[in-house]
Design a protein around this nucleic acid. Structure first.
Lengths: 196, 196
DNA sequence: AATAAAAGAATGAACGTTCATTTTTACGTA
DNA sequence: TACGTAAAAATGAACGTTCATTCTTTTATT
C-alpha cells in the first residue's frame, strides 16, 4: 500500500459504496467491479487503498463502528447520575440509528453474520467501555439489575437493531414517539423494580 | 422435480449440511460442492431436490422456521392468563434456542441479512400469530403496554438471538439461571408497571 | 523527466448448473 | 423365487460464467 495523497475522497467513496451495496445485496453478492463503478473508480484502484476484498470490508466495518461509538458517547459525562447517563447514551444511540440509517444497517448486518473477522469485531467493541462502567456503577447503587453485561446489552441496546431492520423493510416506522416507548422498554428491562 | 421416494433422508441431509455450513461461513461463501460433500451426495443430486441454490436456502429457512414456531406454541393454550401464557411461550422459545443451537443460529443469521427472499420470510412469520393475539388480549386487560407489536417483539423475544450469537462465540453462557434473568428482563420490558 | 496514481484489459481460479452415463429400484413374467 | 426390463435416482465430469486480483499502459503530479 502506497502513500495516499489527494485520495482520501476516493477512499471514502469506496467505503461509502461498500456500505450501500452490502446493505442491499450482502457482501459476497457484491462484486468488486460494482463497488468500483459506484465509487467512480477502476477495479484496480481499489487495490491501491485496500489489500483485498476482505480487508476493504474489515476497514469499512471498523470505521463505521468507530463513528458510531464516538457519536454514542459524545454528550455523555461520567458526572451524570446512572439513570441520566443511561438515558443520554441510549438516546444518542437511537439517534444515530435514526439519522445514519445506512451505517446502522451495515453494522447490524455485520454483527449478525460471520463475514467480519473476529479480530475486527473485537477492535470495534473496545469503545463501548463507558457504558459498561456506567452499568457497574448502577449495580453498586442498587439501580441496575445485577446481571451479565451481555444480558443488559441484549435487552437495552440490541433491540434497536431489530427495529432498524424492520424500518428498512418499511413495515415499521421508528419515529419520535416510538423512540420514547422503546426507551421505556429498555430502561424497564434493566432497572431494579421496587418489590411489589 | 420428480417424485421423491426413499430420498427424504437425502433431502434432510442436504438441509442439515446447509444449516451447518451457512452457520460457519455464510451462504455465499458456501459452495454447492461443499454442501454436497457434507451430505454425501453428488452436486448434481442437489438439483433433484431443489431448483437451485437460492431455493435450497429458502426451503431450509422455511423448514427450520416452522419447526421453531411449532415448538414455541406446543404447550401453549389460549385458556392461560396473559402472564402465564407469555411465560409459557417465552420459555419454550428460549428452550428451543438452548437445545437447537444450530437451528436457532441459522434463523438469526437469515433474519438479519438479505439472503432470504422477502416472500419466504413472510411465509416464516405467519405462524407467530398466537403470540400477537396474546399481546392484544394483554393490552385490553391493561397488563401489556399499548405499543407496536414490533416493539414488543424487539424487547421481549429478539434479544434471545443476540444472546445466542454470543454464546456461540463462547463469550457468554446461556444457562438456566441466565434464562431466568432474561425472562425477567423480557417481561419487565413489556408489562405495565404500577405508577410510582 | 521521473515518479506516483489510475485505468482497462487480461488471467486464472472457483462456482452454479447441466449433461451424458451408470446404478439402483420397482415390478411384471416365467 | 429368479430374471428381465423400464423408469427413477444418482453420479462425476464438463460447461460457461463470474469474479477477485494482477499486469501493462496511460495519465497526472512534482
Amino acid at each position: 500500500m502506497a502513500q495516499l495523497k489527494k485520495s482520501i475522497e476516493k477512499r471514502n467513496a469506496l467505503i461509502e459504496a461498500t456500505i450501500m451495496l452490502v446493505n442491499n445485496s450482502g457482501f459476497h453478492a457484491t462484486p468488486m467491479s460494482k463497488i468500483a463503478k459506484m465509487a467512480n473508480v477502476s477495479p484496480a484502484t481499489i487495490y491501491l487503498y485496500f489489500d483485498n476484498k476482505q480487508d476493504l470490508l474489515n476497514k469499512t466495518y471498523i470505521q463505521v463502528k468507530e463513528a458510531y461509538t464516538k457519536y454514542a458517547f459524545a454528550t455523555y459525562s461520567t458526572e451524570m447520575s446512572v439513570e441520566e447517563g443511561f438515558e443520554n447514551i441510549w438516546k444518542r444511540i437511537a439517534n444515530f440509528k435514526l439519522k445514519e440509517v445506512k451505517n446502522a444497517l451495515f453494522l447490524a448486518q455485520c454483527d449478525n453474520s460471520p463475514i467480519i473477522d473476529e479480530t475486527s469485531k473485537e477492535e470495534g467493541i473496545k469503545h463501548l467501555q463507558p457504558l459498561l462502567t456506567l452499568w457497574e456503577k448502577g449495580q453498586k447503587e442498587g439501580i441496575i439489575k445485577p446481571i451479565s453485561n451481555y444480558l443488559l446489552y441484549a435487552y437495552s441496546i440490541n433491540p434497536l437493531s431489530f427495529l432498524m431492520i424492520n424500518q428498512k423493510k418499511g413495515v415499521f416506522q421508528l419515529d419520535n414517539s416510538h423512540i420514547e416507548d422503546a426507551y421505556n422498554c429498555a430502561w424497564n428491562s434493566i432497572r431494579i423494580h421496587k418489590q411489589s
